[in-house]
Design a protein around this nucleic acid. Structure first.
Lengths: 228, 228
DNA sequence: CGGGATATTGACTCTTATCAATGCCCGTGG
DNA sequence: CCACGGGCATTGATAAGAGTCAATATCCCG
């Protein structure tokens, strides 16, 4: 196996050797892409803002976050991508956002150039890709409503419901991301996120089984709090 | 002419007769769509959340806002669409957001069903549509950063720079939307928007020539305030 | 040009950010 | 197996920014 000896601690910068090109192609959870899988360690960058645009990706396992930074370090995460999700579409030739692995993550990447070459793919392929982009757009617009118009408690409740809907076990949600990432997704601070978790606990809407494992006790309460 | 006798005041609901189906097809500013133009009076709905998805549109003249409401009336505007812009793409068969004319607005609409019929259009048509969706996605992601992470003053400065870039006369920007719409686009209240305009005036970054006409005096100052 | 919508400004409140201290988990090594 | 250590999370006290309510002022829309 190409497995390297040591995975870095989360503070050391990642070397190229940390990113593993897997030997065998693996079937992706959903069918529209196949390609050479790559494995990224927790916290590593898949691509960065300003880099040339070359590939689009599908998550095989793990979680990816798409984010943008302001010069002073403030960060907004625009979305989390789970197994089966496609990310990395660009309209121009340069990346406008960065993509990072939240935990150790396997993705399959595909050269845009070859996908885009006329003759290689049918109209239905581009219709499918158009659908992916439109759904992503819809999600980002919905998130804009959450961030622009909801209170801190409503945002956290909405986040938990979103993660629950996308989870294999809707009543016991594994949050693979730290509080800081949740905060940067919701436009809050990590302290406020923590306080809102505590408040939802008092409302008996959730129970925490360790910081990253949330049991949803009262989905109706959560939905009411979230103001859908 | 099909012009109806009276256009409503902004509080009365719009009748179907308020929406004018123009007699002659008009060339759209950009080339990928052509169709029957429709004219909507100021404040009227082009489509509403929950309605079936039938058409996509291109703005010919005027301004369109895309918005979503919470049950209690809070509203988030996700974007303003100017002449040449395409809006109204959906992934499913139902509208997730509403579209309204900010001022009297002319659009051309196209049946999605016929656009989407195989054989009617080439791959490059769908590639072009994919580009439209991706650019819209990028814009919404950027707006999420503005709303999630910037201060009120930064948001208003960013808004003015955005409108300036999209304006025919970049130094004298015509804002066709009221303060309330700007607030709902930026995730603020109209009072705060008004105060931030006043603050930018004190900084000599802008001058107001009536509430809807903004002269940009110091673009560098605006860009500095906006923290790009 | 007239009047109702729209915008500005002010006083005060409240939510959330900030700064700071403590606690807890989990992985690591003895 | 347990103790240790370090990132991560929680909790508390205070401050700051934006919201709310309210009273004019101004502007455009017809």
């Amino acid at each position: 196996m190409l497995q390297h000896a040591e995975v870095s601690s989360s503070l050391r910068p990642f070397a190229k050797s940390d990113i593993r090109l897997d030997k065998r192609p693996a079937a992706a959870p959903s069918a529209i892409l196949s390609g050479m899988p790559m494995t990224y360690p927790r916290g590593s960058e898949i691509y960065g803002e300003g880099e040339p645009f070359g590939h689009i990706y599908q998550v095989v396992s793990g979680v990816v976050r798409i984010a943008k930074l302001l010069p002073d370090g403030r960060r907004q995460i625009t979305g989390f991508y789970l197994p089966g999700d496609i990310f990395g579409l660009e309209a121009g030739d340069v990346r406008h956002f960065s993509a990072e692995a939240v935990v150790q993550t396997k993705v399959v990447g595909f050269r845009w150039q070859s996908l885009n070459a006329t003759g290689t793919h049918s109209i239905s392929f581009f219709q499918e890709l158009l659908n992916v982009a439109i759904k992503d757009l819809r999600h980002t617009q919905a998130q804009l409503l959450v961030v622009g118009r909801k209170s801190a408690l409503e945002r956290v409740a909405a986040f938990l419901l979103e993660m629950s809907e996308r989870s294999a076990s809707p009543d016991l949600v594994e949050l693979s991301m730290p509080r800081h990432d949740i905060a940067d997704y919701l436009g809050l601070t990590l302290e406020t996120v923590s306080r809102m978790f505590a408040e939802l606990k008092e409302l008996k809407a959730i129970a925490l089984e360790g910081a990253r494992r949330v049991r949803l006790l009262d989905r109706d309460c959560l939905a009411g709090v979230s103001t859908n």
